[in-house]
Design a binder for these strands. Structure first.
Lengths: 144, 144
DNA sequence: CTCACTGCAAAGAATTTGCACTGAA
DNA sequence: TTCAGTGCAAATTCTTTGCAGTGAG
């Protein structure tokens, strides 16, 4: 089901601002904060209010059409969410984000922790940080 | 090495506000945002500025004496960090936070993802969300 | 046609900065 | 005694809300 269908399915309208925000997130390689989405829209010649960006992102988040990515310093930004459960690797160099799946690999750990702590675990947050291939090369060049 | 020693070691002074913030975090079962730390200080009859709370938390974070915990809605809060690498489980009921170790269990996954993506992974963020034993009981009672 | 959605302007939070004063070493 | 650290007040973000106008269905 396309995101347009999901929106409508959930009882929302398919409007210009929502299209623009989705298009921008779709073209973005890195996670974007609301103001960044707004700026890109302006650069692309689109007109939309910053307020709509906030409201649209909140809505898309609720519908799981976008996800939050957390940075170690305590900021968070939005990326498009592909269907299904995914995790992200974030490049510390260029902030590019790549998805990977593999929740299964956590099952053993989850079970162990549940047993040890008595908690009933129902969700998790997993992200990796590192350097993408391009940035690794850039660093290598800089050093040599 | 105690946190006091770590502070001094790093060239900082051991001041009243820093003691107060550490004491409050030490007594807190749940992660606290800056304003919450500030309020608790007031309740405890301590006098310190909100600004100092911000500055102190930033410093403690830099020294790894405290860590950030992320909530799914996009907020983050501070908890005391015990030495060594740890992860957190956060209770969705009472926000209590418990630490667990087990980075080793991620090694296999890390290796696989590195190979698949070409990224060079050097850090990760892992948190579990769920219900602590007490809150599980509370829910069970409510239903019955 | 209607009502959900938009965009402005304004309010409200959250966080940072400038600066004179204070107290840890 | 000295300078790092504090606390206030003000500045700067960041985010939310009220409300009249607009356009998707």
């Amino acid at each position: 089901m396309s995101w347009q269908e999901q929106l409508v399915e959930a009882g929302y309208r398919l409007t210009r601002p929502r299209r623009i925000v989705m298009e921008i997130l779709n073209n973005a390689r890195a996670p974007l904060v609301p103001s960044a989405v707004f700026k890109r829209a302006q650069c692309d010649g689109h007109s939309l209010g910053l307020v709509s960006v906030y409201r649209t992102l909140a809505l898309l988040l609720e519908l799981d059409l976008v996800t939050l990515v957390h940075f170690s310093e305590g900021c968070h930004a939005y990326v498009l969410a592909s269907p299904g459960h995914h995790h992200h690797i974030i490049c510390s160099g260029c902030e590019e984000v790549i998805e990977f799946s593999g929740a299964e690999d956590l099952d053993a750990l989850t079970a162990r922790v549940q047993q040890e702590t008595g908690f009933h675990i129902d969700d998790h947050l997993l992200q990796f940080y590192g350097l993408c291939p391009a940035c690794q090369q850039a660093v290598a060049k800089k050093i040599s």
